[in-house]
Nucleic acid binder design. Structure first.
Lengths: 238, 238
DNA sequence: ATCATCTGATTTGTCAGATAAATAATTGGA
DNA sequence: TCCAATTATTTATCTGACAAATCAGATGAT
């Protein structure tokens, strides 16, 4: 992910401030630095500063009012499932708690997603799951990125639900994998067992067996959770 | 919901354009009207127009590029769980499919949330669930808003998970209830049975019984789903 | 004729400065 | 001490300008 492809001034400001907010530099209830100070700090115009703050506002991180400045909102209003917010959080999160939290949520909706994908039985979308599975197999023998193919598998399952509200959760999965796959791989080597688990999910969905798909997904994620917990104990709690 | 409390120019533009995008006026791949046209249409400055577009960008609806304008992104990139996006979608959604989709997702994560809330066993947060339950009881006899107290109950469960990533889902619950409660109430009158179902969830969580909490939540949501399907059949499919 | 390159037009990105509106802080009077 | 008017500060909006990116068409070479 080297490509720091010269993002715009506005995005740069939004990213840095977002990172600082998620990192705890501006906790809920605090007030962000004012527009003028943002301009000075980033050597940018007020337009850029304002648009950056609007981005943070759009993600639920703060509210702005004349004279009062930008006040950080309570955590319950933060859009933790937003891709950018997840990214900012990832950079400052304590690994142990972070990955456990992500897996708890995945355990909730991914099992249901697998069940729905099986019941929906859409040929094209199931084919996409199969392709991602083949990519994972290739990646397990060194051909391709294991994180990306793994993420593609799970995202394909979400798409196969035919339910729009599952789609935004792919960002969470992506973040979780970026975190957990390298960690567990470093300790246990390539996860051939994980490939089998994914295969079981795929087969259950192909068979249109909702209950089996749900269980296969549940088993797989529980396994990952157990492995991560083991890894944490070995490396020491963060 | 009378309070159209004179939102800012920027918000006004973002709301209207967001509604139009979610309503299908600008489908994925299409290009939004340009900044100049936005200025003309809303009689606003370019600053306001640009900040509005930035909001839509922040929610994943579009990408902007010089000369190419704002291109609407594919559905998979839309932040369907964002409160504003949900609101815009609600205004133009076909009721039958919409409410079913929402319940499918709730069935996924709310059962897990109830189980987590039970295992976490945080006294303060469980007290909040109980309070919301009492508010529901009051609302069922005409004292207070049934939608708000119902939403408060479910949001309290999410908060009791101690997991930040469940919090943003409260917007989805709120939207779902605004939709389903009036619909089912109109057909079946006040839902006393629903109150019992909520009571079972509360008791399981208070007892710290994860499995029972999960099942109670599942039973309740399945019941709602069944009721909504019945209601749809009675009123005619949309 | 086909392709690459150059030129111009169009649209977003950024900057600068000014005025309006909202609200916190201060001040003055009763 | 308390309340009301005033002042100061911050965001909200507007205007106008230039920069940068990119598409479309013209130009030229092979």
């Amino acid at each position: 992910m080297a490509g720091n492809q010269t993002s715009s001034v506005t995005d740069e400001i939004a990213n840095i401030l977002g990172r600082e907010i998620l990192g705890g530099l501006f906790p809920p209830g605090a007030t962000l630095i004012g527009e003028e100070e943002i301009c000075a700090r980033f050597r940018a115009s007020r337009s850029a500063a304002r648009e950056a703050v609007k981005i943070l506002w759009a993600k639920g991180l703060l509210v702005t009012r004349p004279r009062r400045g930008s006040r950080i909102r309570p955590l319950k209003d933060w859009n933790f499932l937003d891709p950018s917010v997840l990214g900012w959080l990832r950079e400052s999160a304590t690994p142990r708690h972070f990955i456990t939290e992500l897996l708890e949520v995945r355990l909730g909706f991914e099992c249901e997603a697998a069940a729905l994908a099986a019941s929906r039985n859409n040929a094209d979308e199931i084919a996409a799951i199969r392709e991602a599975f083949e990519a994972m197999r290739a990646a397990s023998s060194g051909q391709g990125d294991p994180v990306l193919s793994d993420a593609a598998f799970h995202e394909a399952v979400l798409a196969a639900t035919g339910n729009r509200f599952f789609l935004p959760l792919s960002a969470l999965i992506h973040t979780a994998l970026q975190y957990s796959v390298p960690t567990t791989n470093a300790l246990f080597g390539h996860q051939v067992g994980d490939l089998d688990a994914h295969g079981k999910v795929l087969k259950a969905i192909e068979a249109g067996d909702s209950a089996r798909a749900r269980k296969a997904m549940h088993d797989m994620l529980s396994e990952v959770l157990a492995r991560v917990r083991t890894a944490v104990e070995l490396t020491g709690a963060a």
